[in-house]
Design a protein around this nucleic acid. Structure first.
Lengths: 243, 243
DNA sequence: ATTTATTGTCTAAAAAGTAGACAATAAATT
DNA sequence: AATTTATTGTCTACTTTTTAGACAATAAAT
């Protein structure tokens, strides 16, 4: 672990990540809760090293929280309001944690660095939850998957960020075949449909959904799945990269 | 004019603008040429004041080059390669202009500031060329509208930026009715169609194009236009904000 | 008054999307 | 082992949208 050294990073520029996952028929977002008194939820975030591409930085941050190397990710927007700063959050945090902090108080230099106005590049990522081993950082009290419909109130503009990320995800889904990144390698047509329904928050017609997906010619049908349920076993499909 | 003071700006973060216009049935981009020996074309760009929203900064830069206050603009992407720096460009520029520069040589501090790695937020803007009075800055030898098909080779990654901007513009056109920003207040259906053809670089069927546009219910038909041509005079249309 | 070039719009044909129906089938039940 | 059950896979008819062709309307030129 490196000591924090502001010179290593680009100043006043950060990356915030909306990490989407899919579980229990719900679209979820990975949100750490900070290890302080008071309810401080914040999206996984980080800074950019001087010698690092911004996409690399996003990957580093994502890997740090999910343990996964190869993650589908995409820029979706820059948040650059002039009053966008951590200072109110940090002051409230310090106030609530005065006793506990003791000599662990923030270093003055670091405090100044981090309380300036920040421009943040928003990335969203799509991951297969079953592959994720959420990595708690030292600053986290916990880290968990929250349904998009029951997100905690996060610091700053992080809730708005999730909204914008979801908006972009929906638009991109119509053009790119990226939903598969949220599923295990093999899945049934029903599971795929339920995923779409979770993302778009609306039902799809089963027969037509299947037709549409198969017409894309990117799904490979495998041997049957034996679910153990009292009915016909559905096929398993696999996303077929490059026919 | 303020003296350059690095403290006023966010460091290592810039804004580059792709300003689209439409003229002579071609989609064009406003590109200044730098006032130095050698061919240095660079997109209109600038930095962000500490107390300024990034969108405001983009507007300021745009107004400075076009003289127009109300401009349609949109973020389209962040360019953040680790090796993204002005230094090669500036070194070549200084080399080519050694004699001319004389004591006008760059201030050391300013040079250091500007040659660091930069992350740049790309904005594209849509303007009615007839309203634009291109504003040459002191650094410009000229500023002109270049057809998207005959762009000069610009510094750094600016040509790639234009490509990405056009890509985003095309995608957005399918969803938002923003093409009108490129036209004068009134226009004929044919002019609108030719604009779309210039943007998408493909023909549209006249009858169906007209039907589609009218079905959007955002065009107000005005009195006829008298073109002076030997044929039926077409209607003039106007974009109708909010029915 | 006639010709010309282009615009505005109608309609038919093709394609895409939507909805209903039913056969197939794996497991559970009898 | 036959029957029942729940769900999957697919077919087809219907609807809507898109595309293509055709033609009347008309302002200026002849």
């Amino acid at each position: 672990m490196h000591a924090f050294n502001e010179q290593d990073y680009i100043q006043q520029l950060s990356i915030d990540c909306v990490i989407f996952g899919y579980q229990e028929k719900q679209l979820k977002v990975l949100v750490p809760k900070m290890n302080f008194k008071g309810d401080f939820w914040a999206l996984p975030a980080g800074f950019i090293y001087q010698d690092e591409n911004i996409d690399q930085a996003a990957r580093r941050i994502l890997e740090g929280r999910t343990g996964i190397k190869d993650i589908y990710l995409e820029q979706f927007r820059v948040f650059g309001d002039a009053r966008r700063t951590n200072i109110q959050v940090l002051e409230r945090l310090i106030q609530l944690n005065e006793n506990e902090l003791g000599d662990k108080r923030f270093d003055r230099k670091e405090f100044d660095w981090i309380t300036r106005r920040f421009v943040s590049i928003g990335y969203y990522a799509l991951v297969d939850i079953s592959k994720v081993v959420p990595q708690q950082s030292e600053l986290d009290a916990s880290i968990g998957w929250y349904s998009i419909k029951e997100l905690p109130t996060m610091i700053m503009d992080h809730n708005e960020m999730v909204e914008k990320a979801l908006e972009t995800l929906r638009l991109n889904l119509d053009q790119k075949l990226i939903a598969f990144n949220l599923l295990p390698q093999t899945f049934t047509m029903k599971e795929l449909q339920e995923l779409y329904e979770a993302i778009f928050d609306r039902p799809f017609a089963r027969n037509n959904f299947q037709k549409k997906m198969l017409e894309l010619n990117v799904l490979e049908r495998l041997e049957k799945k034996f679910t153990g349920a009292a009915n016909k076993a559905p096929y398993l499909y696999r996303f077929q990269p490059e026919a």
